[in-house]
Amino acid sequence: MRDLLVTDSVSKKFGDFTALNKVSIRVPEGSIFGLLGPNGAGKTTLIRIINQITMPDEGSVTLDGEPLAPHHIRQIGYLPEERGLYKSMKVGEQAIYLAQLKGLSKAEAKKRLKTWFEKLEIGDWWNKKIQELSKGMAQKIQFVVTVLHQPKLLIFDEPFSGFDPINANLIKDEILKLRNEGATVIFSTHRMESVEELCDDIALLDRSNKILEGSLLDIKKHYKTNTYEVGLVTSNEAELRRIISSRFKYDPAEFKSLNEDLKLNIKLSSNETSNELLNFLSSHAEVNHFNELVPTANEIFIQTVKRNAI
């Protein structure tokens, strides 16, 4: 797949503080790219460099194969974490103004806005001032303004903060839809559950360095431990434990279940398959829960960051 955005050894210093240290990422076209990392890792600095708010001290950024230049602003839609709108301006007027700054004509901006406002059911806000709206309502407007000029690259920094679950879902669906229509999305967040749901690829920044990058699937495969979570129904628990321990390593497991099961995490060695385990178990007890333990993005995040800290 072609890479829409490439940063090559980008470094940025503020005085003596290094915000980014030779960070290189590749954002494949048409994907949702999760830019993850703990607070102060340098995510926002990197995003600002991509938006040409600050310049890198070293390294280069290319968009669509061209070195980043002022005219690229029109191809980028940016929803910053620190966000707001002009409070005393009317919704419609403000959206048109911001769209015009991104190079849309007034008529075109108006047309697209109408469509979006209908889609999000906020048409009757057109003549309201931002200060009359709730925070969530203003966030919706902000989202529309970010995507209105149909940029190739969308950058969302914590897009779901301030939204209730219903609206967060609405926005999530819209982001997926935009991706399916061909847009590339960079998505920065601390919320790992939304990373699971949305991201195709991720990069993990920690203390100014990139410590992990790749497709979420590959990373998960790399981090998985061949452990299976099982729930077994048996009359003789001690006997069953003895039989299992003769062949596999296991730990007690914790999960919710309707039955009073024996709950175990069973780890396989690399030459054993899940089928062998299942056959083995079903010949000794009734299996009513069988699940491969795949590391969550959250676990990978914490694990990697901790390891990096050592």
Binding site: Q52, I53, P70, E82, R83, G84, Q142
Partner: peptide
């Protein structure tokens, strides 16, 4: 104060 600065500054010099 209205925190729109980053949106604006990523569109206008």
């Amino acid at each position: 104060t209205s925190r729109i600065i980053e949106v604006i500054i990523s569109s206008v010099k």
